[in-house]
Simulated scan of single mutants.
Amino acid sequence: ALSALLGARGHEVIFAGLYPAPGNALTAAHALNIDLDGKKSALNFSLLKKLAALVREHQPDIIQANGSDTLKYAVLVKKWYFPNIPVLYRNISMVSSWASAGSIKNLLNRMLFRQVDFVTSVGQPSLDDLVKTYQYPVEKTMVIRRGIPEMAFDTTASRNMLSDKYGFHPADPLVMHIGQFSDEKNHPFILDAFREVLAHQPNARLILIGEGKNYSRIADTVSQSAGLRSHVFLAGHQSPVQEWLAGADIFILGSTIEGVPGVILEAGMQGVPTVAVQVGGVSEVVQDDVTGLLLHKHDPKAFAGAVCRLIEDKPLRDKLGQSARAFVSAHFSLDACRRDFETLYARVLNRQA
């Protein structure tokens, strides 16, 4: 969304992917979309040369990396080929969770970050975590919040679409989770909590959106459980997810690791309150009893109790959902995100000059 906005504003944007898309390629409107089709490895010199050739051809003013592999290749292109092009890194996670102090990954990333000209992060906890983990100079950092597009969908039409697709009654309570099927998204906890929900709300339904390495295992768990198979639906990748969220009553998140979860903001923009466990920067986007319900432990019964509370109390659910929409609109504007990046780009380029 940021690349598309920048392109629409007249900036020349090259949206480059390092690896082949797994079937749902990300593309940006108003940008030159290029897949370098590299093979993932510790260091792919062919991919590095492709990226260097791309930079040589287009001569960008700034290279922005979004993720650990893009950081590695961006820094090496800068160091070995184009030392005068500044590299910015956009952080969205708690880096200490996968690059702990003293680890080889931590040491290698510290070396990479010495070549990075500026770091942005989507929230203060994740920024503080990066500064501490890599000993990065705090004066070369800033928080730039996620920008959430304002997409409006008819809630009744979305609910009817989902109920028709999965064969449940539109009045049944509908809970939704969106995230990669990875260990940190904690799908087993979600299923344990939902079993508790069903003990009190036997008509409740749960839709799990996403793909990933644990998808088959979770699908097997659901299909082999008589109590879950007619209540839990795995939807795979869906776009736009906002249309699906508009049909939900409640969004849930039980991750063990998070930065600032954009899916909570997407839900809020559709007027859907969240039940979540506090990790990382979740509390930056879920205000307890204001925009959702926030728990501080991964306790399936307590989590289920919070979900049931919102199912049973529609006035509260509506109130939290309305507050969530107002909160996202006020603090996570896509235009504000774009303006902050434009200001940062100008600042970095002026410093280079």
Rank of each mutant, 00 (worst) to 15 (best):
L208S: 06
L208V: 03
L208W: 04
I209Q: 01
G210I: 04
G210P: 11
G210S: 06
G210R: 04
E211D: 15
K213H: 13
N214A: 10
Y215C: 07
Y215S: 11
S216W: 15
S216P: 11
A219G: 13
A219H: 13
S223P: 14
S223T: 12
S223H: 10
Q224H: 13
S225E: 10
A226S: 15
A226I: 15
G227Y: 12
L228W: 08
R229I: 09
H231T: 09
V232E: 00
V232S: 02
V232A: 02
F233K: 00
A235Q: 06
A235C: 05
G236F: 05
H237N: 10
H237I: 11
S239N: 12
V241S: 09
V241T: 14
W244K: 10
W244E: 13
A246D: 07
G247H: 11
A248P: 01
A248S: 02
D249M: 03
F251E: 15
F251G: 14
L253A: 07
L253V: 02
L253M: 09
G254V: 08
S255Q: 04
T256E: 14
T256Y: 12
G259Q: 02
V260M: 03
G262P: 10
G262E: 04
V263D: 06
L265M: 07
L265I: 04
A267F: 12
A267L: 06
A267M: 07
G268C: 00
M269Y: 04
Q270V: 11
Q270N: 12
P273G: 00
P273F: 01
V275G: 01
V275F: 02
V275D: 03
V279Y: 00
G281S: 06
G281C: 07
G281K: 03
S283A: 12
E284N: 05
V286R: 05
D288N: 09
D288P: 00
D289Y: 12
D289T: 08
D289R: 12
V290P: 00
V290I: 04
G292T: 05
G292A: 09
L294F: 11
H296N: 14
P300F: 08
K301V: 13
K301R: 13
F303Q: 10
A304M: 06
V307N: 10
V307I: 15
R309D: 14
L310A: 14
I311P: 00
I311E: 12
E312T: 08
E312F: 13
E312S: 15
P315N: 08
L316V: 05
R317L: 09
